[in-house]
Design a binder for these strands. Structure first.
Length: 506
RNA sequence: GGCGGAGUAGCUCAGUUGGUCAGAGCGCACGGCUCAUAUUCGUGAUGUCGGGGGUUCAAAUCCCUCCUCCGCUACCA
């Protein structure tokens, strides 16, 4: 089984913020989960480097566009390992392979009679790089400006168009047959209602700037964002060489996107693909946005969250955990210091960390660090093992639908059951009365700890490995095959150390 | 305006096809344990399940209506 997951390509007009980190980590979690399932995974991210905005920013910086994007792209390249993301490729739209792929996709669309030359005209804002309808504009001092105050000018230019209007019925048909190809459900509804509202042909080239992929056989035009940007998902797996091994293995992809760019991925992109005779994406998942202490995040408010700052303050796994434990994936969330501290302390330090600590240090002090497989299971033991089975089933069901928060909650419930089991079995009492039973109890809990650590590995990979290391357990020999079967090996415990330090109140 | 979603304990939210569905976590109160990062375990309290009406033996769950909030309603990644 193969699994292909992508982030959007990030636009090189600014440095990365928490939103970029959020999307990338989401993909990393899903990628790691699928690896645990035993799949071959291809995880792609990259940067989108063309367009008028970049061209202008480069001029303002006294740099050639390529020099400018080289500088900005590296910020995104460097962020990936800092976030603990294990990617398989990083694509830049200025790469030769991508220019070739986009042009090839264009030619394929042209060959299939999906592109025609015409004129595009309307009110255009250079700052926003977008056209506006008259009713979206307001008049200030006799001049039209956009809602956010950008000046607009009336522009008429020759442009190539994609026959999007021809794909309305086919898209509707496709989505009605594949209701889970857009998630969450509410986004699916939005997309479908948008398509049902009618589709107009799409302008896909520009002549007013040069920083883009040249349109084949007409160098006056460069591609306007859509085909260039979206095609990256094909480029990275070898397109246009459709006999390429990666292409054959990994297409179609699962795309994780912010809710603001859902339409491009869920309407234009599948239409392009179908028009080119290529299968549409397997799934598009749209996630929400973060606020900061209840406030909308914006540069002008000065409350942009720098992923480096926040991770250096709380720790990588702690932030990864918070981002996906706190909020149902797909919803908007609020990033607050209080919520972060509560989450880390309650779930990681007090619940999981404590279970690890109380068992490992108890075993070191009272059983010479050695744990031996349990032989005679009581009803209570069996109950706990049954809970593991139930929670693992839930966890997989949720993860398969990108309900990461629900999956995490299932594991936390298992860990809570582990803590409760320790209390009822009271190994500190058994120490005086029944040493054999004490050993069994410790071993049964250790099984739960190890399985919990592996289930949480996609979210908190470094911490999970630390925990497994305490128990000298190598997770490579226990992925999700026969996962709930109890471990059966002697375990020697390494020096325990607190994995999740609590966050002290400010 | 149109389409869609949501209003459930102080907070964040679960609640498939109507009948242990009135719940979880956090917070709070009380009690227990002492292995553990002053951690954990147990018990308990607060809810007219947005308002009103209807269908039904039975509705948070279906229908009608009203109120509030949110998203989408095309060319910005």
């Amino acid at each position: 089984m193969n699994f292909y997951i992508t982030t959007p390509i990030y636009y090189t007009n600014d440095i990365p913020h928490i939103g970029h980190a959020y999307t990338s980590i989401a993909c990393d979690i899903i990628a790691r989960y699928n690896k645990l399932l035993g799949k071959n995974v291809f995880f792609l991210t990259g940067t989108d480097e063309h367009g008028q905005k970049v061209e202008k920013a480069a001029i303002n910086s006294n740099l050639k566009p390529k020099e400018f994007v080289d500088k900005l792209s590296v910020n995104f390249v460097n962020l990936i390992p800092f976030l603990g993301c294990e990617i398989d490729d990083f694509i830049r739209t200025t790469e030769e392979r991508h220019i070739k792929a986009s042009q090839e996709l264009w030619k394929q669309l042209e060959k299939n009679n999906q592109i025609y030359l015409s004129n595009y005209e309307g009110w255009y804002s250079v700052r926003d790089e977008a056209f506006y309808l008259e009713n979206e504009l307001k008049k200030i001092d006799g001049n039209y400006v956009t809602d956010n105050g950008s000046p607009v000018e009336w522009v008429k230019e020759e442009s190539y168009f994609f026959k999007l209007s021809e794909w309305q019925d086919k898209l509707i048909n496709y989505y009605e047959k594949n209701p889970e190809s857009i998630l969450p459900k509410t986004r699916y509804n939005e997309v479908l209602s948008f398509i049902k509202g009618g589709l107009k042909d799409l302008s896909i080239s520009r002549t007013t700037f040069n920083w883009g992929v040249p349109v084949p056989n007409n160098p006056k035009h460069v591609m306007y964002v859509w085909i260039d940007a979206l095609c990256n998902y094909l480029t990275a797996i070898g397109y246009p060489d459709i006999n390429n091994n990666n292409y054959k293995k990994f297409w179609p992809a699962t795309h994780i996107v912010g809710k603001d760019i859902l339409r491009f991925h869920a309407v234009y992109w599948p239409a392009f693909l179908m028009a080119a005779g290529i299968e549409p994406p397997k799934r598009i998942f749209a996630h929400g946005w973060w606020t900061n202490e209840g406030q909308k995040i914006s540069k002008s408010l000065g409350n942009v969250i720098d992923p480096y700052d926040i991770i250096n303050e709380y720790g990588l796994d702690q932030i990864r955990f918070f981002l996906f434990r706190e909020v149902p994936f797909g919803n908007d969330g609020d990033f607050s210091k209080k919520a972060i501290a509560n989450r880390i302390n309650a779930d990681l330090s007090n619940n999981f960390g404590n279970l690890v600590q109380r068992i490992s240090s108890f075993a070191v002090k009272n059983n010479d660090s050695l744990l031996r497989p349990a032989e005679n299971l009581t009803n209570e033991d069996q109950d706990l093992i049954n809970i593991l089975q139930n929670k693992f089933d839930e966890y997989c069901k949720f993860m398969n639908n990108q309900q990461i928060d629900r999956a995490i909650k299932s594991v936390l419930e298992l860990i809570s059951a582990g803590n409760a089991y320790v209390d009822t079995q009271a190994p500190w009492a058994l120490k005086k009365t029944n040493k054999i039973r004490m050993e069994e109890v410790l071993y049964i809990v250790t099984n739960i700890i190890i399985k919990s650590a592996i289930m949480l590995y996609p979210i908190i990979p470094t911490s999970s490995k630390k925990i497994l290391n305490i128990f000298n357990y190598n997770m490579d020999n226990n992925k999700f095959e026969n996962f709930t079967k109890p471990i059966n090996q002697n375990i020697k415990i390494n020096n325990p150390e607190p994995i999740f330090p609590r966050i002290l109140n400010d």
